[in-house]
Design a protein around this nucleic acid. Structure first.
Lengths: 150, 150
DNA sequence: TACAATCTCTACCAATCTGATAGGAAATTA
DNA sequence: TAATTTCCTATCAGATTGGTAGAGATTGTA
């Protein structure tokens, strides 16, 4: 399961991307129903990873560190939750040997879970914040305004 | 990440399937490098779920509760780790609402993580213990004996 | 019957992770 | 200077994880 941390991080980033420009923790907190102090800690992680830039003081806040179409879901999840793969020995970004495994290449779990990793990262490494916003607009459009467009 | 519990459960079941018939915890424990007492607890779970049948006494042990080609990886993982989906609100077997989510159908995470769930369960619900053993034999064959067969 | 082997059950435990909360320091704007 | 906002450090309760201990129940065999 995704941690609450990751869910919050993704929602916060989508909130910033949706609104554009600089956005305060307090606003995100109330809009996305995220405990303020907890969100502060999460934003600090995202800042240290370069996903957002912060400005302090009276009209400060957070802005995306790069365009929304260059921030993937996978990247956010790796920052907040660590590895995406189900086994350490099949992770590309956080590889670690399974200590109790005598021979990695003979392991009957490894090939299957490599396949799972490929399936998952195939989606998450290629889906950006911008994609999520676009899908959302399309869904709204289909229900309400798209007809007007032809 | 998969819990150690799940890894051990899968390895233990594969061990039983590979050897066929009844198999003792002590043997599995040493062969698969799993702490004995911990494995006992895991086998108890698998028994309660019907994946294995146990017999007590002098020549007791555990046998598969049904043929190896009817036990999927997904089923084992759900017993030992719970939901496979990354969000409770997209799980088929353990569905739960996200409390802080005002409108599930407007959620910008949900559609993406449904897609991920489909990709993962598409693999894990359709891969059985028998498949894993077969793949393994094929891999051995390719390296050693297959040439003899033509 | 006694004994050894095996699963079964209950309880317990240390370490880590999760999801927060508290309070103040530092920076910026008006 | 006052207000606003991020930044930093510390703390914490509860759950989860990975495991251990020991006694009890059941069965096969000598």
């Amino acid at each position: 399961m995704l941690s609450q941390r990751s869910r919050y991080a993704l929602k916060a980033l989508l909130n910033i991307a949706r609104n554009g420009g600089v956005r305060q923790v307090a606003a995100i907190s109330t809009e996305e129903q995220i405990p303020r102090k907890f969100l502060e800690a999460i934003m600090a992680d995202l800042r240290r990873a370069g996903l957002v830039r912060s400005t302090r003081g009276a009209v400060g806040g957070y802005a995306l560190g790069r365009p929304a179409d260059l921030i993937t879901f996978a990247e956010v999840m790796r920052i907040t939750d660590g590895p995406i793969a189900l086994l350490p020995c099949v992770s590309r970004n956080f590889y670690q040997r399974c200590e109790d495994c005598p021979d990695e290449h003979a392991c009957q779990l490894r090939s299957l879970f490599s396949e799972v990793r490929d399936a998952v990262t195939g989606i998450l490494d290629n889906r950006t914040l911008a994609d999520a916003l676009r899908d959302d607009r399309r869904r709204d459009g289909a229900a309400v305004g798209e007809e007007v467009m032809g």
